[in-house]
Computed example of a mutant assay.
Amino acid sequence: MTDSEITLLLDRWSKGDEAALEQLLPLIYAELHRTAGAYMAAQRAGHTLQPTALVNEAFMRLSNPADSPFRNRSHFLAAAAQAMRHLLIDHARRKQAEKRFDPVNRVTLLEGDFAGESDEADVLALNEALERLREANPRQEQVVVLRYFGGMSQEEVAEVLDVSVPTVARDWRIARLLLHEWLSADDAS
């Protein structure tokens, strides 16, 4: 099915046509699952979320397209990638909160770090760096989310953001440098 046909289904879904949703799901599910798999590959082994659960939860967050209709396939996939990112951040925050209040998992500085804690910290540190990037340059933050988390090509990102491909390439390069600098500074402190 072509992008324009998917766009028509998204439009019909946003207008309340449940039959359009039933036609749409099989067409986009594999792509959403691939995105979720990429997210999960970056997580620690034994993560309690699985790609299928991540897709389902993200889809639940996007289940009311009438509030903000999707312009096209790329726009929908970008929104799904954002939803997945936020789900992983929420999950990491919950895990850290559980560890903070669970006396079994308390570890003194002399005993070392609790296993697995750094993975949640990494997700949260990346989120803080992305928030900092959004304050500095919102478009660069969007480029990172769409490229890194959404798995989109530079051409797809340019289409979603309505900018040129060289602009996306430049934003991607600068954003990666800034994020690396900020995350390295966090690791050092």
Rank of each mutant, 00 (worst) to 15 (best):
T108G: 15
R93T: 05
F59M: 15
L183D: 00
D162N: 09
V55M: 06
R93Q: 07
L62D: 01
E5S: 09
L161S: 03
R94Q: 09
N64T: 14
A66D: 08
E5G: 01
A45W: 05
P51I: 00
V55I: 02
L88N: 13
L88R: 10
A83M: 04
T48L: 07
E120K: 01
Q43I: 00
A169S: 15
H47C: 13
D67I: 10
G112N: 02
K99A: 13
A58C: 06
M152P: 04
I174C: 04
V157M: 03
V165C: 03
V163S: 06
A83H: 09
M60T: 12
I6E: 11
L9K: 05
Q43T: 08
N137C: 04
A121M: 06
V55P: 03
G116K: 05
R134T: 08
N64K: 09
M60K: 07
E120F: 14
W13N: 04
D186K: 14
R73P: 04
T108S: 15
L146K: 01
Q140D: 09
Q154P: 01
D122S: 05
M40D: 03
F114T: 12
R71S: 13
Q154V: 03
S4G: 03
P138H: 08
P69N: 12
H86A: 05
A38Q: 10
A45L: 07
R173G: 00
T35S: 11
L110C: 05
E5M: 08
L183T: 11
I174P: 00
A79Y: 00
F70D: 05
L10F: 07
R176D: 10
L177R: 06
L110F: 06
E159W: 00
S184I: 04
E128P: 03
D162W: 02
E156K: 00
Q96Y: 01
R93C: 01
V145Q: 14
A41T: 06
W172C: 03
M60L: 15
V145T: 13
R85I: 01
S118A: 13
D11N: 14
D186S: 13
T48P: 03
S118M: 07
A19F: 00
S164T: 15
V144T: 12
D67V: 14
V123D: 02
H33V: 01
A175S: 13
M152I: 01
S63V: 02
R132S: 05
V145K: 07
E141W: 08
G150K: 02
K15D: 12
D3E: 12
F101W: 14
S63E: 04
Q140M: 14
E117R: 10
R85Y: 15
T108K: 04
